[in-house]
Amino acid sequence: MSRLPLAEAEALPAFLKEMHDGAGAQDWSTRHVARAFAAHPDLLERYLSFYYPFHSNDGVDGALEPRLKELVRLRIATLNGCKTCKAARLDPDHVTEDEAARGVDTVAEGGSFSPREKAAVRLAELMAENHHAFDDDTMRELRAQFSDREILELMMMAGQYIGFGRMLAALQLETVSCPI
């Protein structure tokens, strides 16, 4: 059960009502999020107005390919233990269901991932598990694969994936199997 009160769906502001009603029949977590954010709807709407365009490069000058960002998001979802994030498929055109379901968690083992993708996922793991271990060697490895602009975007996206997923878990909004 959510650690915040969940507003009744009928009382939600338009943005949250659309989000709630547009969620799939089994997507309880999206409905939970919409209802919990009734206490501060502008916060979620403005956050998502940054998140989605930069995740997909939709109308923004993103430095990184959406596939790379989706692989990072999915790896962080596993590390965070966020069921909502792990179940979501935000870029099905560029990340196969097999990669999304299990492949991204085995990037270190090789497979069909590019050196850039492997480096991005390693950075995501480092940021999610031990960001204090980020050192000059880590930066050299990143700069071998990415421009400074790309590194900034990669770290910014990874940081917000980590934070949002952990917030969902802490507030118990990411439970996907218990209807309210």
Rank of each mutant, 00 (worst) to 15 (best):
M1A: 15
P5N: 09
A7V: 05
E10I: 03
A11T: 12
L12I: 03
P13M: 01
P13K: 01
P13Y: 05
L16V: 04
L16T: 08
K17F: 04
E18Y: 07
D21V: 06
G22C: 04
W28Y: 15
R31Q: 13
R31E: 11
R31D: 06
H32V: 01
H32Y: 14
A34C: 03
F37V: 08
A38S: 05
P41K: 08
P41E: 07
D42F: 11
D42P: 13
E45A: 14
Y47Q: 11
Y47T: 11
Y47D: 08
Y47H: 15
Y47V: 10
L48W: 13
Y52N: 07
Y52R: 12
F54N: 00
N57S: 04
N57G: 05
D58T: 11
V60A: 02
G62A: 01
A63L: 01
L64S: 03
L64M: 02
L64C: 02
L64E: 06
E65Q: 00
P66N: 02
R67M: 03
K69G: 03
E70R: 02
V72Y: 01
V72I: 01
L74Y: 10
L74D: 12
L74T: 12
L74H: 13
R75C: 04
I76H: 04
A77N: 02
A77I: 07
T78P: 10
G81N: 12
T84F: 14
C85G: 00
C85L: 06
K86T: 14
A88D: 10
R89P: 09
P92Y: 06
H94Y: 10
T96D: 12
E97C: 10
E97A: 15
E97K: 15
E97G: 13
D98Q: 13
A100Y: 09
V104F: 13
V104N: 11
D105Q: 12
D105H: 12
A108F: 07
E109D: 14
G110T: 11
G110Q: 09
S112C: 10
A119F: 08
A119C: 12
A120I: 00
R122S: 11
R122L: 10
R122Q: 13
L123E: 11
A124F: 05
M127W: 02
M127F: 06
A128R: 08
A128P: 08
A128N: 07
E129L: 15
N130W: 09
H131V: 14
H132S: 12
F134T: 07
D135L: 00
D136I: 06
D137P: 01
D137S: 14
T138P: 00
E141Q: 05
E141Y: 00
E141I: 03
R143W: 04
R143G: 01
A144H: 02
A144V: 02
F146C: 00
S147Y: 01
I151M: 08
M155V: 07
M155P: 05
A158L: 00
A158D: 02
G159Q: 05
G159R: 01
G159C: 04
G159W: 04
Q160Y: 12
Y161C: 09
I162G: 01
G163H: 10
F164P: 03
F164Q: 09
F164T: 10
F164E: 07
F164A: 11
M167P: 00
L168R: 05
L168Q: 11
L168T: 08
A169Q: 08
A170P: 00
L171K: 07
L173P: 09
T175F: 09
T175E: 15
V176M: 14
S177N: 15
C178Q: 15
P179M: 13
I180F: 15
I180K: 15
